[in-house]
Simulated assay, not measured.
Amino acid sequence: MMLTIEKRNAVLKTMMTLVKDNAPTILKANKIDMDSYNGEDLAMGDRLKVNDAKIEGMIESLRQLAVLEDPVGVERFSFKHDNGMQVYNRTASFGTVMIIYESRPDVTIEAGGIAFKSGNKILLKGGKESLHSNLAIVDLWHKALQENEVSTDWMEYLNYNRTETQAFLKNPTQRIDLIIPRGGERLIQFVKENAQCPVIVSGRGNNFVYVHKHADQQMALDIIVNAKTAKISACNAVDKVLIDADLPNKVTFEAELLKRLRASNVEILGDANFAKDNNVSVIPNDAIWHEEFLDYKIVIGNIANTLEAIEKINEYSGGHSATIVTTAEAAADNFMAAVDCAAVYHNASTRFTDGLEFGLGGELAIGTDKLHQRGPIGLQHLVTNKWYVHGEGQIR
């Protein structure tokens, strides 16, 4: 049975208070997870860690969700048939949404909250590395539901290992209408291979910056360094840079770029031309252009022109985000129209591909397929639709 929007909002507001009041409990649980983590993967460690700032982010996401309009029942289309029937198309909840994610306890709040606000039952399957953090947060969800006389079945945590998860995906013991994997390529591929229902592919980055020959070079430096170093664990971080062969004072620009990247301890690889000109390690093979690093690592290459930059990005990127830095409006328009990514930028960092930054009040995921929704998936996107037809005995 569908919960009213008043009931859903009440649960979110209660959850906001519970997270604030129980922050020490969440931090204590997260310390157990952090102490157990081996630290081999910098990105995973960054995603796993919960601190005061992340707690504030959880609270803020719940606050914003609670005041957003109900995404369910929104009229998208209406039509009055010649025979008198009235036809409407309105948004509807999916039903049960399963979110499978790695290392990020904040997903238990943000993604779970978006899916709940849009009228869905939630199945959460977090990674073993964040188990204690996730269970502490799910316990708060259950308290928020109970305080508002709502069944705890609306938010269920599946404490399954990989084998159990695979078995559940292949033969679910309950109905699942949509699965959203949040994590690396291995997780996404695992879910796609085993799921028996629609899957929204989310999270793979491998983003590009193209420095056009008419770029503001100081702007280009600032954008590249920000996109690479601000948060390496984010899927909107940049991994590849293409520099136009006709860029004026190219040698000086490249030297300054290397200097600034090295100041942040970024490992720099180059294609044959860039490596030769700048005394950096050459890429082992072209396959590296496909890789998402999630690390202090970058590949820089030279490119002949905008057309070749577009072709390279479309061949190798993850379909997430790409930026052109240029003062030439026509080149920017051409680039943005032709590049096949969910978000395309002119003179801005790829780090903005984020639901909150795009005005969505947070995101469930960032879709990199073209169906169901591309880019940040906000509250208003986590819906399907239904047709409502009102008649008076009409037959065809």
Rank of each mutant, 00 (worst) to 15 (best):
55 I>E: 00
193 E>K: 05
71 P>R: 06
158 L>N: 07
71 P>D: 05
72 V>C: 00
332 A>S: 14
373 Q>A: 14
76 R>N: 12
300 I>H: 07
319 G>F: 09
358 F>L: 12
8 R>D: 08
339 V>S: 01
216 D>W: 12
337 A>L: 14
290 H>T: 11
396 R>M: 11
7 K>C: 03
219 M>P: 06
342 A>H: 06
365 A>F: 10
222 D>I: 13
378 G>F: 10
207 N>V: 14
172 P>G: 10
160 Y>K: 01
52 D>M: 02
182 R>I: 12
132 H>L: 06
218 Q>S: 15
182 R>G: 09
332 A>Y: 09
72 V>I: 14
316 Y>T: 13
37 Y>T: 03
283 I>S: 09
159 N>V: 14
383 V>N: 05
304 A>T: 13
110 E>R: 07
275 A>I: 07
331 A>F: 07
280 V>E: 06
247 L>V: 05
39 G>W: 04
314 N>G: 04
136 A>V: 11
363 E>L: 11
113 G>I: 15
92 A>T: 02
196 Q>V: 15
147 E>D: 14
219 M>N: 13
301 G>V: 11
153 D>F: 09
144 A>M: 04
26 I>D: 04
345 Y>D: 05
361 G>P: 00
8 R>K: 03
219 M>K: 13
388 Y>C: 06
328 A>P: 05
355 G>H: 03
366 I>P: 04
298 I>S: 02
380 Q>L: 11
367 G>E: 09
191 V>C: 02
71 P>H: 04
246 D>W: 02
291 E>S: 05
125 K>V: 15
302 N>R: 04
236 N>V: 05
380 Q>P: 01
129 E>F: 02
265 N>I: 02
104 R>M: 09
245 A>P: 00
147 E>I: 04
4 T>F: 00
395 I>D: 03
395 I>Q: 03
309 A>Y: 05
